[in-house]
Design a binder for these strands. Structure first.
Lengths: 165, 165
DNA sequence: TCACAATACGAAGCATACCCCGTATTTTCG
DNA sequence: CGAAAATACGGGGTATGCTTCGTATTGTGA
């Protein structure tokens, strides 16, 4: 393990502050950990966290255009399009042109999509639960409320749809 | 805004639970918010949060191979390589082959890289601070400690270098 | 009505972020 | 010493996640 040992002596010229104390670093790690847990729990369904969120939102909406869905799940519009295309390729979602507004795509979950959603719900729930399972019940409530306050503050709402800042 | 209104009536067949109550969703949003704040504060330096983390780690280490750096910042090895290549292309980092172990790359921050690090430190700090600024001081401490507990639990340490699970 | 603004998308490009597989080099152990 | 294991990378592939630019369609106001 020669290369694991330091090959030179760090100057540490400045030392801003440890990575593990920076909120942004911890948040990135948390995200990384959750995605890993989600994939471990739901990997057999071949679906990603974002795709699951989109499918959930779609089940709620019934029918929605891509921009509305993007706002629902707080995703960039083009990112949403890409994920929806992948879902559509697997017949979990339909993306028909809306005849009332030919600019828009009328998206809806297929029966297969809704079936998958129901089938994997328990696994998805435990992935979310496991992510913060290390904290006590009361700490979990507090932790979630902290996140919600920050997220709410950085979300602008229009017509009931969340919009990115 | 016809398309923003619901084009159909959602069945809400199951309604697992609102996105905004799911830890994983909140974490993704938090990450999204921090990255946006970081880019707003540090955009002029043309550097991303990950690149900043890598440069920080490199300044601490002095010299390190890519696998060690990946462990330091808890990044996938191939992701690390990509980011280091981009830093190297801008002369902020050197990636020389290590003569003692020709498999490894001896990476180090250039004078230019260290200079940039110092120049943008204040902006980077405020981006991290602003991310959780909505919480009170004591809440911030609590919030950070919650995140650290979860992250620590999901990090295996070897020889002082953090390793992903 | 008709130019103009607003809206919904699409394509292209860059940067994470992960996977798997293959290669080169080093270490280890029989 | 020599085969096998371990290690450090690289390449290819997929999926976010965002920006900018361009296009088509719809809504609006003079």
């Amino acid at each position: 393990m020669a290369s694991r040992t330091r090959m030179g002596r760090g100057k540490a010229a400045h030392r801003p502050w440890p990575l593990a104390d920076r909120p942004g670093f911890l948040i990135r790690r948390l995200h990384q950990i959750h995605v890993a847990l989600f994939n471990a729990a739901c990997g057999e369904f071949e679906i990603t966290p974002v795709q699951y969120s989109l499918l959930s939102a779609l089940a709620e909406r019934g029918v929605a255009d891509q921009t509305t869905l993007a706002a629902d799940v707080s995703l960039d519009r083009t990112t949403t399009t890409g994920a929806l295309k992948r879902l559509a390729a697997r017949r979990l979602v339909e993306r028909a042109v809306n005849d009332d507004d030919r600019r828009a795509r009328a998206c809806r979950a297929t029966a297969e999509g809704l079936s998958l959603l129901a089938k994997m719900e328990a696994a998805a729930r435990s992935a979310h639960r496991d992510t913060i399972a290390l904290l006590s019940k009361s700490e979990q409530k507090l932790f979630i409320s902290f996140m919600q306050r920050i997220v709410d503050r950085n979300t602008i709402r229009q017509d009931g749809a969340a919009v990115l800042v």
